[in-house]
Amino acid sequence: MERICLFPGTFDPITFGHLDIMERALPLFDKLVIGIGVNANKAPMFAPEQRAAWINEIFAHEPKVETVIYEGLTVDCCKRIGASYILRGIRYVNDFEYEKAIADMNRSLDPGIETIFLTCLPKYTSVASTLVRDVIRHGGDVSQFVPDAVLRAIQAPPVRQYVI
């Protein structure tokens, strides 16, 4: 049986902390699906298609990585893609408390899906997408937090559109 794992998140934008978790999870699974969750209650900085494109570019050399954009329950996404595992990254103790509550709920909804927690490397504990977005909004340098694919998109001049 193929070991398929879903790593759900907003990845808005994807950071080196996310990549750390993804790369360390690769040897554990036959397929790692990065699930870009769409949450109607959140106003993302980047379109889900842009986030998927970044992940696809970053992992273009890795056939075990796929991306999916989904809405709704994470366990339902797992069922659609055939995943038996959910991957979550932990930075701090309070992350674990929050993530454990979600894992318990997911287990109640589908006992056949197991949540796996990986802790990030210490150098990434303070790297959060929320903080990175704030730095981007204020014109700061995020090169130490995000991969080149994201940095290029952020630094690209805006496309001007003219209405005729």
Rank of each mutant, 00 (worst) to 15 (best):
M1D: 12
E2T: 13
E2H: 05
L6G: 03
P8F: 06
P8D: 03
P8R: 04
T10L: 12
P13R: 05
I14M: 09
G17A: 13
G17E: 12
L19K: 05
I21E: 10
M22A: 14
E23A: 02
E23Y: 09
A25R: 03
L28H: 09
F29V: 13
K31G: 07
V33D: 01
I34Y: 02
I34P: 02
G37P: 11
G37H: 08
N39S: 09
K42M: 10
A43I: 12
P44H: 07
M45H: 04
M45I: 14
F46T: 04
A47G: 06
P48Q: 02
P48A: 07
E49N: 01
Q50L: 15
Q50E: 12
R51C: 04
R51Q: 04
A53G: 13
W54L: 11
W54G: 05
N56L: 14
E57T: 06
I58C: 12
F59T: 00
A60K: 15
H61W: 14
H61I: 15
E62Y: 05
V65K: 04
E66V: 06
T67V: 06
V68G: 01
E71F: 00
L73S: 03
T74V: 02
D76H: 11
C77D: 06
C77T: 09
R80V: 11
R80C: 04
I81E: 02
I81C: 07
S84Y: 01
S84F: 01
Y85K: 00
Y85F: 15
L87Y: 07
L87S: 07
G89I: 14
I90N: 06
Y92C: 05
V93R: 01
D95G: 03
F96W: 06
E99P: 09
K100A: 08
A101G: 08
I102Q: 15
N106Q: 08
S108M: 14
S108A: 15
L109C: 02
D110F: 00
G112V: 00
T115I: 08
T115F: 10
I116G: 07
F117M: 10
L118N: 02
L118H: 05
T119H: 02
C120R: 08
P122A: 13
K123A: 04
S126I: 13
V127M: 11
A128Q: 14
A128G: 03
S129Y: 03
T130Y: 10
R133H: 07
D134K: 15
V135I: 15
I136Y: 05
I136S: 03
R137S: 15
R137M: 13
R137G: 13
H138V: 02
H138Q: 11
H138T: 05
D141W: 06
V142L: 08
V142Q: 02
V142M: 09
S143Y: 05
V146W: 10
P147W: 12
P147V: 00
A149E: 03
A149F: 00
R152G: 13
A153L: 01
Q155M: 10
A156W: 00
P157S: 15
P158Y: 00
Q161M: 10
Y162I: 01
Y162V: 00
I164Y: 13
